[in-house]
Design a protein around this nucleic acid. Structure first.
Lengths: 226, 226
DNA sequence: CGAATACTTCGATTACCATCGAAGTATGAA
DNA sequence: TTCATACTTCGATGGTAATCGAAGTATTCG
């Protein structure tokens, strides 16, 4: 079977600058309206509407109506991973304008990757949890240990609720900026939500950086030292 | 920093059907000439030449002259991984024509992913090596154990030669068809070369399937049972 | 040295797609 | 019920890029 046509169909969806801007905006995992995405893409509503139709028909995003608003999000974590891998290639091939914009160090430090924490902090979280015996990594797969169940329960994660979700609890995700793994899956998402809830971190208003407060960062470090 | 433009630049390179066919042909890790790639893409030499120029300028492939021949290969494993992730998205989104062509089960069973074994056999190799204690996976990273050094030396792998390469010995790679990991890195590549050398397996002439002989498959199973 | 082969470059042609103004539809608020 | 807002659809326009025939360059072979 020829794989080229399938690659071309997916890649051409992301290959238009306006659509790519929309996809990049959606990497944060947030659902955005058509108007917001038009803004992110720098095109009119009509153009945005056309592009969103293509992305939806192509299966990269999913839309839902809520009154007169249409909200869109990435259709799955695999799309986020694909976009992350494109950024990795762009960075290596000299396309990524890593020298421009003040948020780059912020993005490398902590960012949202679809629904979980990526960047240095994300990698640090994953590696610390594993080193402490809270996670066991094996065969490239990762699972929560008994110890980890206690640890995460103490940290305020409702594991029973996560277990009922139809997605892996734990999963690794390759971090292009660190070239190491961070934690994805429903536990990865829950941990990030918990950091927000505790106000140790907040998502950046305009991008997908995750901003740790001074005290939040200290508490985070302390947590990982357990 | 806006990530959309970088995504668009990379994605649009892969988004043309002719270029995508060339990239797909190169996933096998083989270097191919401009004429061969023109054939794979179904375009004339002039068109192929233009496309190859773009792919090269964009950093996805690297070309080298040898007499009047120009040979091309993917510029790195990260490009292969990106293409594999696109296929993963295509498969989930219903684009991959998995119902056509007789080689699909073959491709799922064993194929080349840039330079290492992917598919069921690739996943099986990785998982067996880890279960037997030849590889240790941790934090999503994977390394060869002492036991593994003996094992691979016995199998005819020159570890000293691999150690001198400027790339990781062991690395995991997500297998889109199995949704689990297989072994990449220089060890992954060497293991596949060894399977070829022993004639347990051979690459398919026309695609990127890896064809195990009957006896080769038995020997492979026996090897993994150690 | 001439012929053959591999590949590149030039230039013309064509098709496709993104764009937005205008108009229309659906939903919510006053 | 009317008005405002969010979004979609229509249709015209312009720009871009893929395509290949023709010609040119580099390399290899007889």
């Amino acid at each position: 079977m020829k794989e080229g046509p399938s690659i071309a169909q997916i890649a051409s969806l992301a290959g238009d600058p306006a659509r790519a801007n929309m996809l990049a905006a959606l990497i944060s995992g947030k659902a955005l309206t058509a108007s917001e995405l038009a803004n992110e893409a720098g095109v009119t509503l009509q153009t945005a509407s056309s592009h969103l139709g293509k992305l939806e028909a192509g299966g990269l995003i999913a839309g839902v109506k809520q009154g007169r608003h249409r909200y869109f999000r990435l259709s799955g974590g695999d799309v986020a991973e694909m976009l992350e891998s494109m950024m990795g290639v762009a960075a290596r091939a000299g396309h990524l304008r890593t020298r421009t914009g003040p948020s780059d160090p912020l993005i490398r430090k902590a960012r949202v990757c679809y629904d979980h924490l990526a960047g240095e902090m994300g990698v640090r979280l994953f590696e610390s949890l594993t080193a402490a015996g809270n996670l066991a990594a094996r065969d490239g797969e990762v699972r929560l240990t008994r110890r980890g169940e206690s640890f995460t329960a103490e940290f305020g994660i409702d594991l029973a609720a996560l277990a009922s979700q139809r997605r892996p609890l734990c999963k690794t995700c390759l971090d292009w900026s660190m070239r190491r793994h961070h934690l994805a899956g429903s536990l990865g998402a829950a941990l990030l939500e918990r950091l927000y809830a505790l106000k140790w971190a907040a998502r950046d208003k305009h991008g997908r950086a995750v901003i740790f407060s001074r005290s939040g960062e200290a508490k985070f470090a302390k947590l990982l030292a357990r």
